[in-house]
């Protein structure tokens, strides 16, 4: 397939701080975040609830402005949303009154109809839903809907795909299937992937690096490279060692009960 973005710029963040001002006081959400993400990398971000993961992703997406510091994609500072960045949310956010193909085409513009049809078909194929072009979102399962959302985010050929807990609402089986799917798509598209997740296994399975964040204010606590060849075996000794390592970060910090999800 030849739908990969022409080039993928590096994403430079930092130092980045964000404070929300509320009538009841202010929330210091992010503090001096520094991340250099080379183009085409797969980055997982884990951290306790409320540590600012979504805020970070929304700033990269351009949805949240009014931060202190710098976020640049290539040599362009990020000041608002743009087609060079795609977003997949936790809920699929498909428009219920549009068919799957119309949902995917929703963000395409200034293209002749046959080009739109070609791109939509290509991306439906990419996410393995070729037969569902005419279906409506309520006729899809949660996993299928999320695949459509991924196709919609990719159809503009963004350089960066931002995923905010995209599989958080899916059951364990579907989740694992979707992780493999995302990996396959990433290998085809060569897009920079930034995945926020609550699931440490997911972070290790997918990421070139796992960024561990701490809370209040959100800072980068640790960046852990995952030097395991893909496809990764979740039950291999190295995998388990990494999982333990990340776990310990949360234990010491917040005395969370022992569980694989944080």
């Amino acid at each position: 397939m030849t739908i990969a973005a022409a080039r993928t710029d590096d994403l430079r963040i930092g130092p980045l701080s964000k404070t929300f001002s509320l009538p009841t006081g202010s929330v210091h959400a992010l503090d001096s975040i520094r991340l250099d993400i080379p183009g085409g990398r797969f980055i997982s971000i884990v951290g306790a609830s409320g540590c600012g993961k979504s805020t970070l992703l929304r700033i990269i997406a351009g949805l949240e402005t009014g931060y202190d510091g710098h976020v640049t994609l290539g040599d362009k500072p990020i000041t608002g949303p743009g087609l060079d960045r795609g977003v997949v949310f936790q809920e699929h956010r498909l428009l219920p009154w549009l068919t799957v193909e119309a949902n995917i085409a929703f963000g395409l513009k200034n293209l002749p109809p046959d080009e739109i049809a070609r791109r939509v078909a290509e991306h439906l194929e990419l996410v393995g839903l070729a037969g569902f072009a005419k279906a409506y979102p309520h006729q899809l399962s949660g996993g299928m809907a999320q695949r459509v959302a991924i196709a919609r985010a990719l159809v503009n050929q963004p350089q960066v795909l931002l995923l905010d807990e995209p599989f958080g609402a899916l059951d364990a089986m579907t989740k694992i299937q979707m992780q493999q799917e995302v990996l396959r798509i990433w290998e085809v598209e060569k897009t920079t992937m930034i995945l926020v997740t609550h699931d440490i296994d997911e972070a290790i399975f997918l990421g070139d690096e796992v960024v561990v964040m701490s809370s209040r204010p959100g800072t980068v606590k640790m960046v852990l490279p995952v030097e395991l060849s893909r496809p990764r075996d979740r039950s291999s000794i190295d995998f388990i060692a990494l999982r333990k390592r990340i776990h310990r970060e949360f234990f010491t910090e917040a005395e969370l009960p022992f569980a694989y999800e944080i």
């Binding site: 351009g62 743009g82 977003v87 929703f106 963000g107 513009k109």
Partner: peptide
Amino acid sequence: HRYVELARILEVTRSRFIAQV
């Protein structure tokens, strides 16, 4: 408002936003 965000991210034109959202 979630669809408003979606439209912003996809840089959907105002007329399409009105017609399709």
